[in-house]
Computed example of a mutant assay.
Amino acid sequence: MKTRLNCPCGEYITGTDEDELVANAQAHLSAEHPGREYDRDAILFMAS
């Protein structure tokens, strides 16, 4: 299970499971990178 993601902007995003990680990553994108959207598969591909 993947629960960590390092955004290229330097933000370290985590979740207790993949669902939470995806939600947290999408929230980060909305807040910090408007116009950038990634689906679940893309986020999990970049995560570790």
Rank of each mutant, 00 (worst) to 15 (best):
D17A: 06
D41S: 08
E11V: 11
M1Y: 06
M46N: 07
E20C: 09
G35D: 11
K2I: 03
R4M: 13
E37F: 13
S48T: 14
T14D: 07
P8G: 14
C7P: 04
N6Q: 14
G35Y: 11
E20Y: 00
M46H: 11
G15N: 01
I43N: 01
N6H: 06
C9Q: 07
P34E: 04
L21Q: 03
H33P: 00
L5K: 00
L5P: 04
I13N: 04
G35V: 10
G10E: 10
T3I: 08
R40M: 03
G15Q: 07
Y38D: 02
L5Q: 00
E20V: 10
S48E: 14
D39A: 07
T16L: 10
Y38Q: 13
L44E: 07
E20R: 03
G35R: 02
K2S: 08
A42C: 09
D17Y: 02
P8H: 13
M1H: 06
Y38T: 07
R36P: 00
P34S: 01
G10H: 15
A31H: 02
A27G: 03
R40K: 10
S48P: 04
H28E: 01
Y12P: 03
A47E: 07
A31Y: 00
R36Q: 10
I13P: 01
G15L: 11
R36A: 13
V22H: 05
A23G: 06
D17Q: 12
G35S: 09
D41G: 13
E20F: 03
Q26L: 05
T16K: 13
Q26F: 08
C7Q: 02
P34C: 04
P34G: 02
R36S: 11
A27S: 11
D41Q: 12
L5C: 01
G35N: 06
A31E: 06
N24R: 14
S48A: 08
L29D: 03
K2Y: 04
N24K: 05
V22A: 01
A31M: 09
G10P: 05
M46E: 11
A27R: 08
G35F: 14
L29A: 04
N24L: 10
C7M: 07
A47Q: 12
R36N: 09
I43T: 07
A27Y: 04
M1F: 13
M46K: 15
S48N: 13
R4T: 10
F45A: 10
E18Q: 11
N24I: 09
I13K: 01
D19M: 13
H28Q: 04
E18T: 06
A27M: 11
R40N: 01
V22N: 05
A47F: 12
T14M: 15
H33S: 05
G10K: 08
A42K: 12
H28G: 02
E18R: 06
Y12W: 03
N24M: 11
S48M: 10
D39N: 11
D39Y: 02
H28L: 01
R36C: 15
N6G: 05
A42S: 06
C9E: 05
A23C: 08
